[in-house]
Amino acid sequence: MAGWLLHGVLTGVDLCAIALGFYLLMRVCRVMNFSYGGVIVLAPYVCSALCDVVPPFIAVAGAVCSSAALALILEATVFRSLRRRNAHPVVSLVASLGLFVVIQALLQMVWGPARQSLGGPTPPGFTVGGLHLSFASLTARAFCLLAILGLHLLLVSTRVGSRLRALSCDWDLAQSLGIRSGRLLLICSAIAASLGALGAMSVSLQFGYAPHTGQDLLFLVFPAVILGGRTFIGVACSSIGLQVLRVAGQRFMPRHIVELILFFLVLVALLLPVRCLRRMRTS
């Protein structure tokens, strides 16, 4: 039991990093940004390519930077243009979907459709409760956890964080108080992409990666973002909680049944007036 519980929590941390990046874009940029799935999955590809020529830590930094750079380019070219045209959120959503399709197809053209692995087949590590933990994946999770804590600190105790929170609460009021949204949105996109890239690389260390990994990761984090609603803690807790449930469920039944049950749990949560959920969703 300790093994699968630990597995659930550790993979939950990875998904938490990805979910929080998506949540940040949704709250601050006001875009349900599907292209995020493509942006974060670029990181494992770049990391794998860089690992052949530079030390792993520099490769990871390079991969995070590549994802952040792509997110900055998309924000500066597409999403900023849409905002200048006063586009409705639906328009931005559809554009992000288009970008996601383009990125996914480009990844497939360059690196092929096959699943690839990051790190060796049996990386060095140790076993806890039947679960093999590699040093590399533990280090990646530690980075994810640090990044999540760093983001929390940034949001609650820095000037940039308070401006980001102001933008997420009331865009017009924040503007009228002199907050320059353009630069902040670029910062937000870069932070979200970096956080997601760390999560995606950590997931890839264990399960490998393919061009459609971004889409699979989005499927995994959507229930957490829906249930977690509008709070940082809510999204973080529901990411880890849902992943523990998913791992526990997959011990007893096939994956598709678990996903079906989780989907219906999300629907039931939307229907039932569960007070804590409602508070999380609307606060």
Binding site: V78, S81, L82, R85, A87, V91, S92, V94, A95, L97, G98, L99, F100, V101, V102, Q104, A105, L106, Q108
Partner: peptide, 14 residues
Amino acid sequence: RQILYGLALVGCML
């Protein structure tokens, strides 16, 4: 084809 679909969506929205 996928790239063209995606670009068509983005261009259409822009």
